[in-house]
Write a protein that binds this DNA or RNA. Structure first.
Length: 467
DNA sequence: ATCGGCTCGCGCAA
DNA sequence: TGCGCGAAGCCGAT
């Protein structure tokens, strides 16, 4: 057992078993995956082959063409890479509610043990709370999301400044490539269950066949899958990393990594991104690098937060001063009040805000800096703080390829004071940090951004992602 | 253009 | 117990 692995039940291993099962819920990749390698080690110990199960169901909240396309696009390459290692791969798409929802349990019936991803939000969190009791084999959750494992932090951290020194002390120990475990027994079994065949040309038809929300179209900017993830990382390292520090808060400069969709669906690991970035720089000042600050300190603060609270989507998570100040300003007059639907349709009076919302609708992601303004204005223009929170979560859950992630809920709650500090009081916000249109105009090239989003809307093409 | 004040509380030094 | 300083700011004075 290592510092990434938690046993979530205490069932004995099945003696007469055909394989060890890795249930790839969040880390949908064959490379740089601690959970996969832990499962491979377990399989070798038991002299068994390893089977990877990856499922996608039509029933999770906001299941739509955008999310489904991104996930299914990853399937062929994951299959190729696992099979090249002698590891079995079973992808199953549950298209309708009439299809039985028992694939995991059917595969588990022949498994010696189940290994899955330790992940503190959305569906995987709920699965890992309920499934271990329902299977009759050991169930292990492995932290393959963080560089410094979540287990290394004994409590919920208060802010970036409290977790930063702890990460700096530990990071060298973990900033190492994942060791690949060679499987001793190749997977050659024929399963009773039918996998869903996927080829590059069949993704759209598969998505269309699912009983999901077809009104949320695939992202105009992001293609899913390992090859697209690797290309995105390489291009970032080669072309954009050198100007990241200067331009990361200038959305029109496209200096950020664009990795968040791939990180969220686990098609690439943050460890791979960190190793690629450090290989470029003087390794002794690793943590001084601004990209690694965001990739490791802020991202892993989000995982720390989500792993320690009862409900990562709740306003109860913001500090006392923030809840108090919001209560004091609960009935302040709002100059403009929009409904969730008006926000969703990008129908506010503010063209800059509307452009950000259109970026979410079309690209499936908002630039990190502008997302803060986007959130702050939803607070300013909602009837209540609670309603603003619900709107932000809804819009991210439904449209963002990097939504449903610890980072998503952390970024949203940051707008309500979490991991932040109080500032001079003002209406509606109280002591929550305020952000203004004038600030955006002063600090960023809003005109270039507006033009870009207008082009995206008019042509359906993203000049920065489609060569 | 630049700067200080705003305002709370964590964590460390003492 | 005191003190420095913090997830990305604003505003008014100079």
């Amino acid at each position: 057992m290592n510092d990434r692995v938690k046993a979530l039940n205490s069932k004995p291993a099945r003696e007469a078993a055909d394989y060890v099962l890795y249930w790839s819920q969040m880390n949908r990749r064959a490379d740089s995956n601690h959970a996969l390698e832990f499962a491979a080690g377990l399989a070798n110990q038991r002299q068994l082959p390893l089977l990877v199960y990856e499922g996608l169901t039509c029933t999770y909240p906001y299941a739509n063409d955008r999310m489904h396309t991104f996930v299914i696009e990853g399937v062929p390459e994951t299959g190729r890479r696992l099979e090249a290692r002698g590891i079995g791969y079973h992808f199953h798409l549950r298209r309708t509610r009439q299809d039985p929802n028992d694939r995991l349990y059917a595969l588990a019936a022949r498994a010696a043990a189940i290994v899955t991803d330790d992940y503190p939000t959305f569906i995987a969190r709920r699965h890992n709370a309920s499934v271990p009791a329902k299977v009759d084999v050991p169930y292990y959750a492995v932290d393959s999301s963080c560089i410094v494992p979540m287990s290394q932090f004994a409590k919920r951290e208060y802010a970036a400044y409290t977790i930063r020194p702890k990460i700096q002390k530990l990071v060298a120990r973990y900033l190492k490539p994942v060791e690949t475990v060679k499987v001793k027994r190749a997977f050659r079994l024929t399963l009773d269950q039918q996998a869903t065949p996927v080829a590059a040309g069949t993704v759209a038809a598969l998505v269309a066949s699912c009983d999901i929300d077809h009104s949320v179209k695939p992202s105009l900017s992001f293609t899913g899958g390992r090859l697209a993830a690797e290309k995105t990382l390489t291009e970032f390292i080669e072309r954009r990393l050198r100007r990241y520090t200067r331009d990361k808060n200038e959305p029109s400069a496209h200096a950020t990594s664009d990795l968040s969709p791939y990180l969220h669906f686990g098609q690439i690991s943050s460890l791979e991104a960190a190793l690629a970035a450090t290989a470029q720089a003087d390794e002794t000042k690793v943590m001084a690098d601004v990209f690694l600050e965001e990739l490791i300190v802020r991202r892993e603060l989000a995982f720390n937060f989500a792993s320690y609270v009862d409900d990562p989507e709740s306003m109860a998570n913001v500090p006392d001063w923030a809840r108090k100040t919001m209560a004091e300003h609960a009935t302040d007059k709002r100059d403009a009040v929009y409904s969730q639907e008006q926000f969703e349709n990008a129908a506010t009076h503010d063209p800059l805000w509307n452009a950000m919302q259109k970026e979410l609708l079309l690209r499936g992601k908002i630039h990190g800096y502008y997302r803060m303004y986007w959130g702050k204005k939803i607070i300013e223009w909602s009837a209540t703080h609670e309603e603003a929170l619900k709107t932000m979560i809804y819009l991210h859950d439904r449209y963002a390829l990097d939504g449903r992630d610890p980072n998503t809920y952390t970024n949203i709650l940051w707008c309500f004071g979490m991991h932040d500090r109080p500032w001079q009081s003002r209406p509606i916000f109280g002591m929550l940090r305020y952000m203004s249109f004038d600030g955006m105009k002063r600090k960023t090239n809003t005109e270039a951004y507006l033009k870009e989003i207008e082009f995206l809307e008019r042509t359906g093409k993203d000049p920065f992602r489609i060569a």
